[in-house]
Design a protein around this nucleic acid. Sequence first.
DNA 1: ATACTATGCTTAGACATTAAACGAAGGGTT
DNA 2: AACCCTTCGTTTAATGTCTAAGCATAGTAT
Lengths: 403, 403
Amino acid sequence: MVKVKGNQELVRQINQSLILDAIRRYGAISRAEIARVTGLTTGTLSNLTAGLIASGLVKEVGLGTSSGGRRPTMLQLEASARHTLGISLAIDYVTCLLLDLTAQPVIRRSAPLGDDKSPGTCADLIADLAREVLAAAGMKAEELLGVAVAIPGTVNAEEGLVIYSPNLKWHNVLFGPMLEDRLGVRPLLENDANAAVFGEYWCGATKDSSYSVFIFADYGIGSGFVINGEVYRGRDRAAGEFGHMTIDVHGLQCHCGNRGCLGMMASGKAIVRRVREAMDAGTPIPALAGRASGEVRLQDVLQAAREGDPTCLRIIREAGEYLGVGIANLINLYNPASLVLGGMLALEAPGYWEAAAESASQRLYPVFQNQVHLLLSTLGPDVPAIGAGSLVISQLFRPLRVQ
Amino acid sequence: MVKVKGNQELVRQINQSLILDAIRRYGAISRAEIARVTGLTTGTLSNLTAGLIASGLVKEVGLGTSSGGRRPTMLQLEASARHTLGISLAIDYVTCLLLDLTAQPVIRRSAPLGDDKSPGTCADLIADLAREVLAAAGMKAEELLGVAVAIPGTVNAEEGLVIYSPNLKWHNVLFGPMLEDRLGVRPLLENDANAAVFGEYWCGATKDSSYSVFIFADYGIGSGFVINGEVYRGRDRAAGEFGHMTIDVHGLQCHCGNRGCLGMMASGKAIVRRVREAMDAGTPIPALAGRASGEVRLQDVLQAAREGDPTCLRIIREAGEYLGVGIANLINLYNPASLVLGGMLALEAPGYWEAAAESASQRLYPVFQNQVHLLLSTLGPDVPAIGAGSLVISQLFRPLRVQ
DNA sequence: ATACTATGCTTAGACATTAAACGAAGGGTT
DNA sequence: AACCCTTCGTTTAATGTCTAAGCATAGTAT
């Protein structure tokens, strides 16, 4: 934790962020109204807004309605004043978004990732996509407010280091500098679930809910936390190993060495395994007829379930019920205001999140009953990229933390 | 989250806290050294330390050794400049401590709580103890920096409200005002595990470890979290329901409505239940011979275990192993720097915390292996009271949080 | 038309940090 | 012992920010 000393610069930064944040929240707001909600004087508002307008971040957008006196001059964010690249490196594809100041995507490019998932190849692909996006926007990298990349693994943002990514099979890769060489700007790295939870907090389902959790239910299971409006990363930036939470002490052996991990019961991987087991045991699954069980993939199971196959539906529902156990544990510990479900399972597996919600609510500690909002991701599959970009944008709207 | 606007008063507060905190950390330190560690100029230090000395919080304690020039004037906290009452309302006793500025206990009084645990009786008992302590110190309540009470339940500090305490059987009790009527000052209420974790963070086992967890293993099981040097309370101030974490989806039914809660397997209550079951099943426990199984209490089991009874030792060890499962889950989610075990089981049940440590380390996600320090409480049974007092004291040493 | 109210700018004053100068007090070298 | 250098802590002027108050502007209400 960096300790910040107080001086006039800090004061100005704090108040400027306070004003920018108020403008962002209210959409269009007058100086007088900002003064009321922030507690600043109108004099300070005249002074600071002049600076914000000069820097192009804010614009005057005509007069509002009078409330018995002079009509107020309304202020608004100039969305196109700054841009950010939000990039998501997922297991099998890369997405690159150009976001404006309001975190709205302006341009989007996506590309599949082949079997070669080496850092160099990934960096090249990301750089190509980024250049394509910038070219389409007629911008140069130097004009960007910043670049951020969401990565499926633990990262050390300060050093641009990917500590460990099981899915990419990376260990201690200095990915930040590799991208810097190619892009000319230093990107911010963030874990994908952390980026996702911040995205939903900044401009998605849990907007402005200071205590929120994102659960990433996909082939694997991950989680991210926002506490007090900031991503919670833990001491070694490895918080959120939700997939390896034990919910069944006597359960199945997991590759992590433990037994009964949530991921063994509730993940896409678990669903595929159970469907294969069912097929091997002779359960008829017409939608998958003629396929070798070893070739069945998660997408196939989801498709079969969408077509109404009862076995697939049952297995998905049971996986969702296990997830609900984990969710209840999470809520009992964190007591968040809201919880967002994202990832392929939550968004595309029929009955999955409904089963999770029901099972969680049955298992919650009574105090929390009906207190926690369980929501679906509103930003969808692009949430890690949007979240990554939002992390950069948010720095404009938040002062440095004191102490 | 209160948003704080910036002005000179804030700047002064921040820097004064920064200086006080440096003095606290270093024990004795010169103005020049403080300037170096805080980044402030020596001019500011002369100015602000003059104020701190005038207010009595800081004193000059002679000259330090020269490092090649003029000898520095060393500054130290004046421990007796301010005092705090830290009070712990536990299930069967009340403790009241007078703490000085360094959170050292100066005077201690404790009294048992009878069967009548009504709010009025508890408030009377606390007020009596507090008056006794103040009389012994020759102080008046108004001279105190503050009073804080640790309570076994969820509390709303702002309103002085005890939302729910299962052990005391309180629901929505306005305990703060009740104490205010009796003491003449408004006390700060805090959950006992939260107070405990803060105590260990402020002046105990996890001193200055910004990410720390306290596990309260006693008749029940609770937990508290410090994140970024602040108690984490969650949205409804109910975070930390560690005892109701499901670790066995198919496990025993708990009174909370769920199955396989940690508390059903790892708590003092669970140990007593299992010992009784063993006795009923005919297992000989010589140390408890002649007792009706229904009359056996936790203290008896601990005593029997200390005398070497193998059944009691085994049951305690197994309970510890279950706790370890929960601890591993906790670490996987929070990734804390350190974790403190407190409560009667951790401190007095032979083999309990060792079993927990071993089982946790076996089940941890590989990334965390050997990364987390598992510690025993150094403040012992008084940790909730010390922590409560520390919460008040700490306000002097920490600026308001910005945003 | 007049009184009143709200908005937003300007100005003087208060106040905290900063940079620089300076005195105080010690060490080291010759 | 004299001299130079270093460190410590205070003082002073400059800088920059907020605040309070005054005021011009521009509406509404009667």
